[in-house]
Amino acid sequence: MRPCHAVVVGAGIGGLTAAVALHRRGWRVTVCERAPEPPTTGAGIGLAPNALRALDAIGLDAAHAVGSAVPATMGLRRWDGTWLVREATTDMAARYGMPPIAIARPAFTAALAAALPPAALRYGTAVTGVDDAEGRPVVRTAAGPDLPADLVVAADGIHSPLRRTFFPTHPGLHYIGETAWRCLVEAPELEVTATSETWGRGERVGITPLSDGRLYLYATAVVPAGTRWADPRAELRRRFGSWHDPIPALLERVGRLDAADVLHNDLHDLAAPLPALHHGRIAWLGDAAHAMAPNLGQGGCQAIEDAVVLAHLLPAADTPDTVADRIPTALAAYTAARRARTDAVRVRARRVGRLGAVRNPLAAAARDLAVRATPNRLARRGLDDLFTGFRLPGR
């Protein structure tokens, strides 16, 4: 008997997690990625307790695989350095059973890829479409050959061509009004031990220590969509060079990077939820399914949850003659399990972003005062549903 075959479109965090989870359920997996090789540059990612629990459910210890950075404190600051809210990471670990960790995305995707058979990964393989009309999908690739599958996992990113094909009336993406810069910086002498986000007026800067000793630096600004600068490094220094330490010192190091090492993207989320997270024998996950603003740090975490829940609901592939018949029911259960949670996180991330994007001086001052006056215990409650909300259906 042949093992059931899943074709995963996209080798990002969600796609690779799905491939690992299905592989460990006995499925044969093929991951098609249009990029010619794995990424070597990029940004960092924070893995919150909900994502770490999901990874643990498939036997993958992210901290063991790539190391982890656990900051002493996490919090929110004003542009002048005043803390608006701050909490010791040990307190968060006590509340949620584990602390969040931060790692470089390339290292994490490499760890996920290492958990797959080498033949499962096909870089430089662009998917041009999926024929799902006959019950067993066929994945079309630019270079060939076509790939028959029992299941297709659409993890093809925020601009998902498969989403546009199978949900043609969906409104697509919504520009949230901000552009973002992201990069990784070497600055061990600065001894940064806190993960922080700093709010100004329509501008933000985030600093996260990573497991490899580098710092993940990101910044956002409210600008019209498509705004670009000849030198993004100079623009960062112009906008944020007078903000609190260690931001000026980090920006000085950003100036030494190649321009290509500073990622610059406008921020979008999905304008509305998809009517379902599946169609036929295709399942969408991550940004392809519910692109969200990065304001809660949950985009990658929700993609991981998606992947683990999807694999859990699909039958193990040791009896393929009956597995194929059970896939449609499993995908319907996947939509039921994930659609409401992911859309609630998407909406909440957009709302938080609106607070950070306030530009009016009086409104920004009132916002900062309100955040600072909010007791920590109330702020923690706002994280509870995010960090403890992961559940495997039936458990």
Rank of each mutant, 00 (worst) to 15 (best):
L236R: 12
A332G: 14
T342W: 06
A43K: 00
A187G: 06
L52I: 04
N360K: 12
T195Y: 04
D325G: 15
A288S: 11
A221E: 14
A289I: 03
V192I: 15
R338C: 09
E178V: 13
T141L: 01
V222D: 13
L331D: 07
L22R: 01
A62T: 00
A283G: 10
L16W: 08
P248A: 14
D343C: 08
V347G: 11
R281G: 03
V85N: 13
T374M: 12
A340V: 12
A272V: 07
R359Y: 05
R214G: 07
P315Q: 00
R380D: 12
Y218C: 14
P315Y: 00
L392P: 09
A94M: 05
H64E: 15
R377W: 10
R351V: 14
V345Y: 12
F387Q: 08
R24S: 05
A62F: 01
A119F: 02
R350M: 10
P3V: 07
R228W: 02
M292S: 15
H312Y: 07
G202D: 08
R214F: 00
L173F: 01
L162I: 05
D156Q: 07
G353M: 09
D132Y: 10
V309R: 10
T335E: 08
E189A: 14
R105H: 10
L22D: 01
R341E: 02
I282L: 15
A54V: 02
P36G: 14
R24M: 07
Y96A: 02
L257I: 11
F166I: 04
H279Y: 09
M98D: 02
G15T: 01
N50Y: 00
A11Y: 02
L210A: 02
A225P: 11
R380E: 05
R377L: 07
W181T: 09
E197S: 13
E33F: 07
C301H: 02
H290Q: 10
F390I: 01
V345D: 12
V192P: 04
Y334I: 06
A230E: 13
S196E: 15
A230Y: 00
E37V: 08
H23R: 13
A6D: 03
D306N: 06
E252A: 15
P137C: 11
R136I: 01
A349Y: 05
A288I: 00
S68C: 11
A303N: 04
G46T: 15
Y218G: 03
A11I: 05
E235W: 08
E197Y: 04
D80C: 05
L251E: 08
L296R: 12
V127D: 03
F390G: 01
G12F: 00
Y218D: 11
A18S: 04
A379K: 07
L296C: 11
A54G: 08
G157W: 06
V127I: 12
Y175W: 08
T227F: 03
L331A: 10
A35C: 08
I45T: 08
L217W: 00
A19P: 01
A142Y: 03
T195H: 12
P246S: 15
R34C: 04
